[in-house]
Design a protein around this nucleic acid. Structure first.
Lengths: 201, 201
DNA sequence: GCCAGCATGTAAGGAGTTACATGATTAT
DNA sequence: ATAATCATGTAACTCCTTACATGCTGGC
């Protein structure tokens, strides 16, 4: 029934996230957007694959929310740079106003593994948690680096707020992992299946 | 090239998560699995839609990892209950052993909105964060309820560990939200577009 | 000479969702 | 009576990923 005919085009959250990056006013290529997403959005909203970035940019262009311009030469054959339009800014605002944020979506493979810990070797499980903790510690360091780079510029006021939230978030994840590791460090009796009680019945 | 021909069938993480619930040894219907997922997996791994539960159960059955049995009468027309097979337990163990857990996937719509705060009314943004905090507080209470229900039974040892992790997680989220709210409570200058500097140029 | 980084895309498919369709039982 | 809960499924669609295809430029 031809949805989104006039008011607001029907785009994925990721499209709006990319439009959001463009809302800071810079003219960017798909490649640059991906790199920026990897250094910002990644910390709180899974960064899209390269191929998705290009697809979403196509859609944003089709909807008139960004304009594209081919810049020859540069570093390679041709670079297509994108700039948000006034309609783009308006559409993004409308989306932010109308769409409720909804619950965060979390898919925590490590937590799932702990939950199913009765099927795993305890030491192995502890190692999985430890690896997760180390990754979180790295992310925390990266995030602090990003935060430092933001400096005092009022442009990045909200980015700094999110970075602060992220620090709390990843620090909590590290803390929780540490506690889990301690709980799993005791002399493990190895794997034990709940479904298999006794040798035959 | 006919993958997963012998060794391990090629199933989605959600299928393994459901198989994981069945690994506790109970015989469950799709409906019961969904309800249980909503009360356990949901806290750390997005609970699947009803329709997906049935689809994954079909696949698990096709792969011989669960057996199904129709129980007539019960509460309604007919209830198809599922039980994990020995191959199912083996496949789940193999999956847990072979597949690395990978980074958690997070899609935090609230954080995205804060990041794009320059496009939103400050008071509205604060309300969004406050609503998120309240939801987290609710989830925290629910989680504590679940934890209490688990009791001392060694069957739920790992479930208790995950619940503990979850408490840290949601408590941190509440704490971070509270701080954000405080930062956003100051006399707001309302929305201001970075892309629009000046009336015309 | 070769590899890493810059740069843009297409093709195929998996994972998951919402909306729809159906119907019995139980509690208010 | 009628709403909520129990119960199973199909259809259509979106989102997003991996793998593939291509080619330039600059540093080692």
């Amino acid at each position: 029934m031809a949805r989104a005919s006039r008011s607001r085009p029907d785009l994925s959250p990721t499209a709006y996230a990319l439009l959001g990056l463009l809302s800071f006013g810079r003219e960017l290529s798909g490649y640059e957007l991906k790199r920026w997403a990897d250094g910002s959005i990644r910390f709180f909203y899974a960064a899209p694959a390269m191929s998705q970035v290009y697809r979403e940019l196509d859609r944003l262009r089709d909807a008139g929310l960004v304009t594209a311009r081919d810049v020859p030469g540069g570093a390679t054959r041709v670079t297509r740079v994108h700039r948000i339009t006034d309609e783009g800014t308006a559409a993004l605002r409308a989306w932010l106003d109308d769409q409720p944020a909804g619950q965060p979506v979390l898919k925590h493979g490590v937590a799932l593994r702990v939950f199913l810990g009765h099927l795993a070797d305890r030491e192995r499980l502890r190692a999985t948690v430890a690896e997760h903790r180390r990754r979180c510690e790295e992310l925390l360091l990266e995030l602090e680096g990003v935060e430092a780079d933001l400096g005092d510029d009022p442009t990045w006021h909200h980015a700094r707020l999110v970075a602060e939230w992220g620090r709390t978030y990843y620090a909590a994840e590290v803390e929780a992992a540490r506690r889990l590791e301690a709980r799993l460090a005791g002399a493990g009796d190895g794997r034990r299946a709940v479904g298999e009680r006794g040798p035959e019945q």
